[in-house]
Amino acid sequence: MVTVPSRNVAICLFVILLCFASVPLFGDKYFVKLALRAIIFSIFAMSLDLLIGYTGLVSFGHAAFFGLGAYIVHLVSPVDESLNLFICLSLTLGLTAVAASIIGAFSVRTKGVYFIMVTLAFAQMMFYFFFNWPGAGGSDGAFIFFKPALKFGDLTVIDLDDGHTLYFFSLFAWVACYILLIFVLRSPFGQVIQGIKINEHRMQGLGYDTYLYKLVSFVIAGTIAGFAGFLFACIDGFVSPGLLGWRESGIAMVMVILGGQGTLFGALLGSVGFHGMEEIFREPAITGVIAEHWQILMGIFVICVVLFLKNGLSALITRFDSKAGEDV
């Protein structure tokens, strides 16, 4: 199966993660935050890759769960003290999973372009809900004054208010999500969803209730996206309705395509590529007058990657891999 990282991929990932781990040691605060955003968006994009790259469900409303995860942190956190990390995390994951099952139950019934439209519609509904709900700050967004922490009496084990703690917590979370998804995809369940991507009728013909399998895949992806939202909310302690908008869904999709769909680790390459290029294109010292209109350069960059690399940036690594038949 494609999901087992080959030696080349494993080496590359190790090097990239090592670079990430060393950022807080050398880089200044701005770069630490940039790297942190790249890691968190990579988790978000990786969950979308489970849908697009493995299940064949092109969701255009995945940010609904990302934003919801972030908003739940705001809603459950008390204003005068930090909430227990375990409680906060369980609530976030649980509630996004519930939301994903409800939205998934409706949208997974549809196929192709209708699926895109239904997921987009649900995400926009959620966007306008939080946009117009004063209880969650409305269009201004809202603050999380005390970020979740894990404390035993006076002993603080994990405090996500601390920049470095959050950074390494997120880095660890990325590795955990990656390994979890590899196990999911290597399981019989994972084989079935990959079969559904290729030929859903055939999977039904083999006796699988494909609706159920697609729904479970949708819920897993939604929950992990909610987890990424949870981490994102802890960066600045600020959430805004924009997190649920179609723009965020689009960015996640661009990252998946940029990195290479159906690879999982491609999400990391896509996220790093996207954030890195954005920084370069926005720097007037490098791009001069175009820096203000960096989106144009980003567009050209994405088009070039799609045109000249067979499966996004991941192709740069996997093209040196041996074929499966010779591998084992």
């Binding site: 199966m1 991507k197 009728h201």
Partner: peptide
């Protein structure tokens, strides 16, 4: 369809539809 398959009927289609990603 999947219930029909579970009742013990297997279909070998002309198009073969092997799963190339497995």
């Amino acid at each position: 369809t999947h219930i029909i398959a579970l009742s013990g009927i297997a279909f070998v289609p002309e198009t073969r539809s092997i799963f190339p990603n497995l």
